[in-house]
Amino acid sequence: MRHRRLSSVAAPVRGLAKKLLGGKAAVEASVMLDWPAIVGTEIAERCQPRKLARGRGANAGAATLHLTVDAPFALEIQYSAAQIVERVNRYLGYPAVARLALHQGELLREEKPRLPQIPPLAAPTRQQLDQDISGIADDGLRQALDRLGQAVLAKPGPDRR
């Protein structure tokens, strides 16, 4: 038997976050993670932050926010640049971004999780489920219970009908 001691969670999490964020600063990570909340869903559907590049030398205080933009909306995003910079700076609490750089390209879209397909129930099981939920007056609740019942009853098991 091996006994493991309790260990700090901070070290592994820090290493994992560094790998996931690719060494990006916390400011850049927060802008990327909270993008829809910062600029609104309408703008967020048309562009995504790519990176936050800090200036060097004489431009040390100025940062450029690079955005990937859907090609049909590039001009619209360009016209909204001042508003986007203002929203990002307001979110961060200080003037971190001085300008935007737009790059036309395909946006990374999150796939919405699909509900698993439930196999059809055998006729006697289906009839029993319909009978069990027939007394429920609320349509939404009845439909939800029907889906739940189908999912539960479709799984093989010793105590299934």
Rank of each mutant, 00 (worst) to 15 (best):
A81N: 04
T41V: 08
Q131G: 13
D130F: 10
E45A: 01
F73N: 06
A122V: 05
V85L: 04
D130W: 08
A71T: 00
A62M: 14
R160I: 09
R90T: 15
D130K: 14
Q127R: 12
G105Y: 00
L102D: 01
A29I: 06
D34S: 05
D130I: 10
L33M: 07
V13L: 08
P124T: 05
Q78M: 09
R87H: 04
V31L: 07
S80P: 11
L148D: 08
G135H: 15
P49S: 00
R126P: 07
H66D: 05
S30W: 03
R56K: 13
A62Y: 02
P156G: 04
I133H: 08
E76R: 02
N89W: 13
P113Q: 12
D159I: 00
K155I: 08
A11I: 06
D34W: 08
A71C: 01
K51D: 13
R5T: 13
A44N: 05
P119L: 05
A71I: 02
G61I: 10
A26Y: 11
W35Q: 02
T64P: 06
L67F: 00
K24F: 09
P116W: 12
L75D: 14
L100K: 09
E76L: 12
G149Q: 03
A63C: 00
P116E: 12
D132G: 10
Q48H: 03
A10H: 09
C47P: 00
D130A: 15
S134M: 07
G55A: 07
L21S: 09
K18L: 13
Q143R: 10
P120G: 09
L20E: 08
L67G: 00
L52N: 04
I84C: 02
P12Q: 02
L33Q: 03
M32G: 01
G135Q: 12
A96V: 14
R160L: 09
Q150S: 11
A144F: 04
R147S: 02
Q128H: 11
A101D: 14
K18I: 03
Q150A: 13
L129T: 04
G140S: 13
D70A: 03
P49N: 00
V85G: 02
D130T: 11
P95H: 10
Y94K: 15
R109G: 07
Q48Y: 04
Y94G: 09
G57S: 05
L67Q: 00
A17L: 15
G157T: 03
N59K: 15
V97D: 01
T68V: 06
Q127A: 15
E76A: 05
L6V: 04
F73I: 04
A96G: 07
Q117Y: 14
E28A: 11
T64K: 02
P120Y: 09
G149K: 04
L108W: 00
G55F: 13
T68Q: 12
R90L: 15
P113Y: 07
P124F: 10
Y79Q: 14
L153A: 08
L108C: 02
H3E: 11
P120N: 11
P72Y: 03
G140E: 06
K18V: 06
L65F: 07
S7L: 15
P12R: 01
P95A: 07
M32Q: 08
W35Y: 07
A53G: 05
V88R: 01
R109K: 14
D34G: 06
V39H: 04
D130N: 15
K18A: 10
V152S: 13
G40A: 03
